[in-house]
Design a protein around this nucleic acid. Structure first.
Length: 440
DNA sequence: TTAGGGTTAG
C-alpha cells in the first residue's frame, strides 16, 4: 500500500498481535506514532493485547497505560480489559485490581478479565469471591467465567465448590466447550477425584488434544503412571492427533512419578519422531527421572549437555535426590548453584546441612550454619500478617507476641513508602482484603 | 475495513 490510514495501521497491528507476534505488533505501533495516522481506541486494544508475559512488555504495557490516560481512553471497557489482562499476565494483579475498581461500567468480559487475573496469579479465593459478586450484580457468567472459576477451585482443591460450578455448567451451557471440558477434568484431577475426571473424559465425544493431555496429566499427578501411559498410547494411534510438548511433559511426568525409567527415556527420544525438539521442561522431567531413581551422575551429565541453562527448580530437585541417595559431592555442587541463584532462600542451606549430617560430616554442618548466619538467612517460622487500611496505615499485627512482629511493623513504614513510590504492591505482599502477609 | 476474556506443563 502506498498510503496507510488509521484503519490499515490498526489492522496490521491487530493481525500481528493475534498471531502471537507481539514484538512486531509493538514495533509497528511505534512506526505508526511516527506516521501521519494517530492511534484510536481500537489500535490501543490491539497493541496492549500484544504485551504478554515477559518483563520488557510490562514496561511497554505501563507506557501504553500512560498513553491511554493522557488520551482519555480509560473509560472504554475494551481498553480497560486489555490492560487488566496485560497486567495480569505480567504478574501485577494489584495494578489490574486498581483498573477494575476504577471502571464505572462492568460488563461480563471485564469481570471475566479480573477473575482470570486473580486465578492466573494464584489468588483463587479472590477469584471465587469476585465470581459471587458477579452473580449478585446480575452480570451473566459465560463459559469463559466458569472456566476461570474452575481453575481457581482446582488450585485451591475445593472439590465441593468445584462440583457446584460443574452443576452451573450443566445448567447454563447447553453445549460444553472443549475449554470447559478440560477445565473440569483438570479441576477433578487436582481435587483428587480422578474417577470423576475419567467419567467426564469418557462422556465427551468431541475431544481435542488439550482434553486428552489434561486427562493424561490428571493420572500422572495422581500417581497413576500406568493409566497415564495407557491413555497416551491410545492417543498416539488416534488419527489426526496433535502431540505437542505439553503432552510429552505429561507422559514424562507420569513416568517420573511412577519410576518408569526406561519408558521415560523411550518417550523422550520419541519426541523427535514427531518433529518435536525437547524444550527445557522435557529435559527437566528426564533429569529428574534419572536423579529420583539414583542415576545422579547421568542426571548431572544431561544437565551439562543439554542446550539450556539449568534453572532453580532443576538444581533444587537434583539436590533433593542427592539427599535421598546420600550423595555429598554432587549435593554440595547443587547447593552452591542454588545459593548463587537465591541466596536468601533457606531451603537449600538446610538441605545441604541435612546431607552433611546424614554423612556424619558435623564440621561441614557447622559451616553451613555459619554461612547462613553470615548471609542473614533465616529458616522460615511460618506466616504472620499485618492489617492495613486503604492508605496502607497499619492497624493490627497478626502475632504480636512473636519477637519478629515488631520488626515487621517497623519494616512496614519503609515498605509503605516504597510501595507508594512504585505505585503498586508486590504480589507476594498483597492481599486485596487489606491484609499483608509477612514471612517470619 | 480495525478492538477485550477461557483449557493442559518441570
Amino acid at each position: 500500500m502506498k498510503r496507510h490510514d488509521q484503519v490499515s495501521w490498526t489492522s496490521i497491528i491487530s493481525g500481528l498481535s493475534r498471531m502471537g507476534q507481539g514484538k512486531e505488533a509493538i514495533w509497528m505501533f511505534k512506526e505508526m506514532l511516527d506516521s501521519n495516522s494517530k492511534p484510536n481506541c481500537l489500535t490501543y486494544v490491539s497493541v496492549i493485547s500484544a504485551c504478554k508475559g515477559v518483563e520488557e512488555t510490562f514496561d511497554q504495557g505501563t507506557m501504553l497505560h500512560a498513553h491511554v490516560l493522557k488520551l482519555g481512553f480509560n473509560n472504554n471497557s475494551f481498553v480497560v480489559s486489555s490492560l487488566i489482562n496485560c497486567y495480569a499476565k505480567c504478574g501485577r494483579p494489584y495494578q489490574a485490581v486498581l483498573l477494575f475498581d476504577e471502571a464505572t461500567v462492568r460488563d461480563t468480559i471485564l469481570f471475566n478479565s479480573m477473575i482470570a487475573a486473580y486465578s492466573l496469579n494464584l489468588y483463587g479465593e479472590e477469584a471465587l469471591k469476585l465470581f459471587i459478586r458477579m452473580r449478585n450484580e446480575d452480570a451473566s457468567p459465560s463459559d469463559h467465567t466458569l472456566t476461570n472459576v474452575l481453575n481457581a477451585c482446582g488450585s485451591l482443591t475445593l472439590l465441593h465448590q468445584g462440583r457446584q460450578v460443574h452443576s452451573l455448567v450443566t445448567k447454563l451451557c447447553s453445549e460444553k466447550s472443549v475449554f470447559l471440558t478440560s477445565a473440569l477434568i483438570d479441576m477433578y484431577s487436582k481435587c483428587g477425584s480422578i474417577g470423576d475426571a475419567r467419567f467426564l473424559f469418557d462422556e465427551t465425544l468431541e475431544k481435542n488434544d488439550v482434553v486428552w493431555t489434561s486427562m493424561i496429566l490428571g493420572y500422572a499427578q495422581s500417581g497413576k503412571g500406568a493409566d497415564a501411559l495407557e491413555l497416551f498410547e491410545r492417543f498416539e494411534i488416534l488419527d489426526g492427533n496433535k502431540l505437542d510438548h505439553i503432552c510429552f511433559t505429561a507422559v514424562l511426568t507420569a513416568c517420573n512419578h511412577a519410576g518408569f525409567v526406561d519408558k521415560g527415556i523411550e518417550y523422550f527420544n520419541k519426541m523427535r519422531d514427531y518433529g518435536l525438539v525437547p524444550q527445557l521442561d522435557q529435559f527437566a522431567c528426564l533429569i529428574d527421572l534419572y536423579a529420583r531413581n539414583g542415576h545422579l551422575r547421568k542426571a548431572k551429565e544431561l544437565m551439562e549437555e543439554m542446550p539450556y541453562e539449568p534453572n532453580y527448580v532443576m538444581w533444587s530437585s537434583f539436590l533433593h535426590s542427592c539427599n535421598s541417595y546420600g550423595e555429598v559431592e554432587l549435593g554440595r555442587e547443587a547447593a552452591y548453584q542454588l545459593f548463587k541463584m537465591e541466596p536468601w532462600n533457606a531451603a537449600s542451606y538446610i538441605m545441604l546441612a541435612n546431607i552433611y549430617a546424614k554423612a556424619g560430616l558435623w564440621n561441614e554442618v557447622t559451616e553451613v550454619r555459619k554461612l547462613m548466619q553470615q548471609k542473614g538467612v533465616r529458616k522460615s517460622a511460618g506466616w504472620s500478617w499485618v492489617e492495613v487500611d486503604k492508605e496502607l496505615h497499619v492497624f493490627s499485627v497478626g502475632d504480636a507476641t512473636h519477637p519478629e512482629s515488631q520488626k515487621i511493623y517497623e519494616g512496614l513504614e519503609k515498605l509503605n513508602f516504597e510501595m507508594k513510590e512504585a505505585g503498586y504492591i508486590q504480589k507476594q505482599l498483597y492481599e486485596p482484603e487489606g491484609i499483608i502477609y509477612c514471612q517470619l
